[in-house]
């Protein structure tokens, strides 16, 4: 049982990524997260099978930066559409069709609009992956033997050893006090 392993073993501690605690309900996780936040931890995380309402606030996680990528993508897309149509139908090979103007933002609008959406979609998803640091197929948390239930029905809280307030005993005691069970060390 990883939970029964002595935490003060120095060679293990060197390789330790952090401590993980299991919670059974989203409410328990949320309460624990609030306390860990208030204890001043910075490098820690929660694992849940679905986004728990209010967990962002309980963890002190700020507003996501993904919209910045979306905005940049959208502006790029719209400009791409307008410039592309101007370049093709007016500048590079002006083709007269029915006496209509070679370029007008009006008829260029539908295509630019679609490209705005297309580029925004790619930028949003790309931005989300970038901010989340995905794909990352090997992560210390994924090595934990019970983590598989984190995508099904259990909730976990992980505090990293890299956190300045991390202390093998105190942190463990904190997690125990929060009602976390099966507190275990994660291999680095």
């Amino acid at each position: 049982m990883p939970g029964t392993r002595p935490p003060e073993n120095p060679p293990m501690a060197e390789k330790t990524y952090g401590l993980i605690a299991t919670f059974d309900t989203p409410g328990a996780l949320l309460r624990a997260a609030e306390r860990v936040r208030d204890a001043g931890y910075r490098k820690w995380d929660c694992i849940s099978p679905f986004p728990v309402h209010g967990l962002d606030a309980a963890m002190g996680v700020g507003r996501s930066h993904v919209p910045r990528f979306s905005l940049a993508g959208g502006i790029t897309g719209f400009c791409t559409g307008m410039v592309m149509i101007w370049y093709m139908d007016k500048f590079d090979y002006a083709l007269s069709v029915g006496g209509k103007p070679f370029f007008s933002p009006l008829f260029a609008f539908p295509v630019s609009y679609e490209l705005t959406i297309l580029f925004t979609a790619f930028a949003t998803i790309g931005g989300m992956f970038l901010v989340n640091g995905l794909p990352m197929h090997y992560h210390p948390v994924l090595k934990y033997e019970h983590i598989r239930r984190g995508t099904s029905d259990l909730f976990f809280l992980v505090i990293e050893r890299a956190d300045p307030r991390y202390d093998a005993e105190n942190t463990r005691a904190l997690l125990e006090g929060l009602g976390g069970r099966e507190i275990a060390e994660l291999e680095g």
Binding site: A33, D45, C46, I47, S48, P49, F50, P51, V52, L55, D56, M59, V61, R63, S64, H65, V66, P67, T124, I125, G127, M128, F129, V131, N132, L134, P135, M136, H137, Y138, H139, V141, L142, I147, G150, T151
Partner: peptide
Amino acid sequence: AMGWRGSARHWSNYEMA
């Protein structure tokens, strides 16, 4: 799955996206 692990910090960005 891109190495998705259900991290709350990921969920935050994911939900925004």
